[in-house]
């Protein structure tokens, strides 16, 4: 038997793994990947709620979150490329200055 709580616990597990990745990793690319994991975990929770209430609202929201995920990856990776061109590093502990 698979209940709503099974899906929510899976969602919590993935979200926390993603959050840990953002906190402990120094490579900005891996931090972005962790954010992707967190977004996927939110979609799991939304679709589970949608399935248990039989309303399509959660599915619609999950679709919009996927669009946001694509936009976030595009802009974030462009920032990484721009920063790498300037400083030759992808490690966040070397990103200390606001000026160029």
């Amino acid at each position: 038997m698979v209940t709503l709580q099974h899906h929510l616990i899976l969602s919590v597990a993935l979200f926390v793994i993603g959050a840990t990745g953002v906190v402990v990793r120094r490579n900005v690319l891996v931090m972005f990947m962790s954010v992707e994991i967190m977004l996927a975990s939110v979609n799991v929770a939304l679709l589970a709620f949608s399935r248990w209430t039989l309303l399509p609202n959660g599915q619609a929201l999950a679709m919009f979150i996927m669009a946001v995920m694509a936009a976030e990856a595009a802009v974030g990776l462009a920032l990484v490329v721009a920063f790498f061109r300037l400083r030759r590093t992808v490690f966040v502990d070397e990103m200390k200055l606001l000026k160029g």
Partner: peptide
Amino acid sequence: LVVSLLSVAGIFGMLGAPFL
């Protein structure tokens, strides 16, 4: 990460959201 996202896609399919 690809493996993880594909597994999540399988979960989506089981939740009655094949399009997602």
